[in-house]
């Protein structure tokens, strides 16, 4: 089996890769979002702490 044949999925390429592609996309976006949210939460806590110091 060569790679061209493999990616063609015997005519079902759109359906098979459309499924796995969407899953990969969703997982990557979700990972970026949860990590970004964590970063924002920590940043906000630092801002709160600095604001408290100035008072």
């Amino acid at each position: 089996m060569n790679w061209g044949e493999f990616f063609a999925m015997n005519g079902y390429a759109l359906y098979v890769w459309g499924s796995y592609g969407m899953a990969l996309l969703i997982f990557i976006i979700e990972i970026i979002l949860v990590r970004h949210r964590k970063k924002l939460a920590v940043q906000q806590l630092r801002l709160l702490r600095d604001a408290g110091k100035e008072e």
Binding site: E30, I31, V34, R35, R37, K38, L40, A41, V42, Q44, L45, L48
Partner: peptide
């Protein structure tokens, strides 16, 4: 893994 990362942010946000 992702829900535990998310819950850590929620903890920080709510317990700030």
């Amino acid at each position: 893994a992702v829900s535990l990362i998310r819950v850590r942010s929620i903890i920080l946000e709510r317990e700030r």
